[in-house]
């Protein structure tokens, strides 16, 4: 997987509370945006529902590459839905994921922030570069790889800051987490290739979905 969904019992309680508070604040900003915005159409809500369901189902497929990997597709959600609706989608994927044991309930705060980084970064890079380059595969590949690399770095940083419950030596946490980050980065390259092909395919058959990447639902 391109990043790990942290299970319950790994983070100390004060950090669980802190990440929940930060993610609640970020989600609050998004919800406030929707309350004040008159541009939220019913079609975009349905689109977000469909995209979220799709991301949740596609995660369950093992792509038989490098011994088998699962894709998160959060950068793809960012490219298609935009950052605001993408954030809504990410929190729901996290809730559904926690319900089936893919990530914990306590670490939803941190997992959501990690997903949000992927969504915002993928959206921003794709939006900035796609109009100039016009090559959907290359731009989606680059946007996804940058997004996943950033979230990977954030995951290592946040776990290093919070520590893992019961671990005695701090220095070794960094070493261990850096090794995990390297493995995740390899999976990120595969996810970037699949997302590149996926966006290129959609650009051919349904260009309206990613045209200009204004976020189809935002």
């Amino acid at each position: 997987m391109a990043h790990i969904h942290l299970p319950d019992g790994v983070l100390p309680i004060e950090w669980v509370a802190a990440y929940w508070a930060i993610s609640a604040a970020l989600l609050g900003i998004v919800l406030l945006y929707f309350r004040r915005s008159s541009s939220v159409q019913v079609g975009s809500l349905a689109l977000a529902g469909a995209a979220t369901a799709l991301a949740f189902v596609l995660f369950q497929i093992e792509v038989p590459v490098l011994g088998g990997i699962h894709l998160n597709l959060t950068p793809f959600l960012g490219i298609v839905l935009g950052p605001a609706m993408g954030a809504i989608s990410a929190i729901i994927v996290n809730i559904l994921g926690a319900a089936v044991g893919h990530g914990g309930w306590g670490p939803i705060g941190l997992n959501f922030i990690i997903n949000l980084i992927e969504i915002v970064a993928a959206f921003a890079v794709f939006r900035l570069v796609y109009r100039r380059w016009g090559n959907p595969f290359a731009v989606a590949f680059m946007a996804t790889l940058i997004a996943l690399s950033l979230s990977n770095a954030f995951m290592v940083g946040s776990l290093t800051a919070s520590g893992i419950q019961g671990v005695e030596e701090d220095g070794l946490e960094v070493t261990g987490l850096s090794l995990i980050a390297i493995v995740n980065e390899a999976a990120a390259v595969i996810e970037s290739i699949v997302t590149g092909f996926l966006v290129a395919f959609l650009a051919k058959v349904k260009p309206g979905l990613i045209g200009g990447s204004g976020g189809a639902a935002s």
Binding site: A50, V63, L198
Partner: peptide
């Protein structure tokens, strides 16, 4: 392999979004 899976996912995306459009309307 990545291309094959992307096409499967792509058809899934198109189906889902068409369905979403109908539901939205």
């Amino acid at each position: 392999m990545a291309s094959l899976y992307a096409k499967v996912f792509g058809i899934g995306v198109i189906y889902s979004f068409d369905k979403a459009e109908r539901v939205g309307k």
